[in-house]
Amino acid sequence: MENEKEKILEAVYFYFQNQKYKKAIKILKKEIINFPDDVDLLYNLAILYESVNEFDKARDFFKKVLELDKNNEDAKKHLEKLINR
């Protein structure tokens, strides 16, 4: 799984850097169906939603990250910013 996850994350990173956010979201959503508790995947999806200004979805995924990893400082920071919008 680790190998496959790495490949997915790499592809998502590539599309993100090239500002092809929707494409990156599509890939991640598909992968999250198979690995619904993977913090790295969930966190990146939240960031992607935030990048395209879909704040409700971004909030939901940052919350999910924090349910699984309550000390995730980055997720906390982003969630706080989104709640104060």
Binding site: E6, L9, E10, V12, Y13, F16, Q17, Q19, D40, Y43, N44, I47, L48, S51
Partner: peptide, 9 residues
């Protein structure tokens, strides 16, 4: 987008 380690966005 800014650069991140381990493909973290």
């Amino acid at each position: 987008p800014t650069e991140g380690e381990d493909f973290k966005l």
